[in-house]
Amino acid sequence: MLNAVGFPIRLASGALLLAPLLLLAACQPAAPDPQAPRTTPQLASPKPVRAPSTQAPKPKSVAIAPPAIPSAAAALDRRIEALGAAFRGDVGLAVRDIQTGWTSHYRGLDYFPQQSVSKLWVAISAFDMADRGKIDLHGKLSIRADDLTLFHQPIKSLATRPGGFQTDREDLLTRALTQSDNSANDKMLREVGGPDAVRATLAAKSISGIRFGPGEKGLQSRIAGLDWQPAFSKGDGFYAAREAVPIARRRAAFEAYVADPIDGARPLAMVDALARLKNGQLLSDASTAQMLDIMGQTRTGALRLKSGLRPGWTLSHKTGTGQILQGEQAGYNDVGILTSPEGRSYAIAVMIGRTSRPLPERMDLMRKVVRTTITYDSELGNQRQAGPT
């Protein structure tokens, strides 16, 4: 049984099995026609079969027990709920067993800011276009100073060289995913057709519960109470402009964003999309393998989800980090696909919308979600070995 957003839920059901008692009524032959010729002898009337003298018993209802829930899955539910409830800040958590579809979550239907997690959807749009022959990922292009955006952009040193920087689309995708390079991502966003094209890809692939914003320049300007200007990409232009915004306006823009993020996503939708990516339901086999390989090389967030890994476990993931205003951060995330040494995989989303808690506390939450998932995998394996009880 699936719930409203397509995830497994427990179903308590019952059915009535009816065992009716069939009674044989007495049979009497038809009266002979006095005008009919008697050419054959009449048959003797059969003896009537009497109905039982006692009243027939009422049908008994037989309850059908719901399928047993593995204790490991029930424990995962409890632990994820406890981790979410204990964290002091707006947080949504979701873990999906990609093999069975079992999903545990905390506030999984609420929207949380994605920030750079949204770079995933630009990459999926590009790979999808490549699968359909609409774009060549090895096509050459140039990155120049006027392609720069704001905040984290390691490509900046290359783009500001005389003549700019020659590269290809695949390199830009890799930089956007592994380094969370804003300029590389915004360049690829233009290459795939802009925000509307990404939204069309999400809709075409039935990825719901995930919004795509206007791109890094528009998103970050809006959160700061600004409208993007090309001068913001030069030097400290954006920081200077943001500092000049009256604090009341900045606070209003910040509050509006965290209350209803234009790039928001539901944790349950996030793990569903990641599971479908892993299962090859979003891209071709070759593109799926390539994207997961790139995500496995992510350099950002070494102390987030990745800090919970055990020997032999791997993680293909994407981080997201929002702006800070007066000690509060709007978005601190890590989402990805966790894979065991034996090849079992789990989609994980930890999305923090607003918090002022120290970074070590946020990282500790992410580490615990990964460790909890690994514990679930171990307990489920033990239950399978033990067999039915």
Rank of each mutant, 00 (worst) to 15 (best):
G163T: 04
G235F: 04
D171T: 15
G237H: 09
N185H: 02
T174H: 11
A252I: 11
F165C: 01
P261T: 06
I247G: 03
G225E: 10
D236K: 15
N185F: 00
S233N: 14
T167C: 06
R242K: 15
R242E: 12
V245R: 05
D236S: 09
Q166A: 14
G194F: 06
L202D: 13
R211I: 02
G218Q: 01
P230M: 02
K234M: 08
G237N: 10
V192K: 05
S233Y: 04
G225W: 00
A203H: 10
G164M: 07
A248R: 11
T167W: 03
R242P: 01
P162I: 13
S180W: 01
W228A: 08
S233T: 13
A252E: 12
A241Q: 08
E191K: 04
A204T: 06
S221F: 09
L202K: 10
T174V: 03
D260E: 15
S208L: 08
R250K: 15
Q166F: 04
I247V: 14
A241T: 07
S221M: 11
A252G: 00
A256N: 04
I247D: 12
A200Y: 03
T167Q: 09
P261L: 12
G209D: 07
A252L: 12
D181I: 07
Y257A: 00
A244Y: 02
D236Q: 15
F212D: 02
I210S: 06
V198C: 01
G225M: 05
L173A: 03
E170T: 06
R161W: 09
T178Y: 00
A259T: 13
F165A: 02
A184W: 03
T174E: 12
S206I: 06
N182S: 10
L189R: 09
V192I: 08
I247F: 09
Q179L: 15
T167L: 06
E170P: 00
V192R: 07
G193H: 11
R175A: 11
E255A: 11
I247L: 14
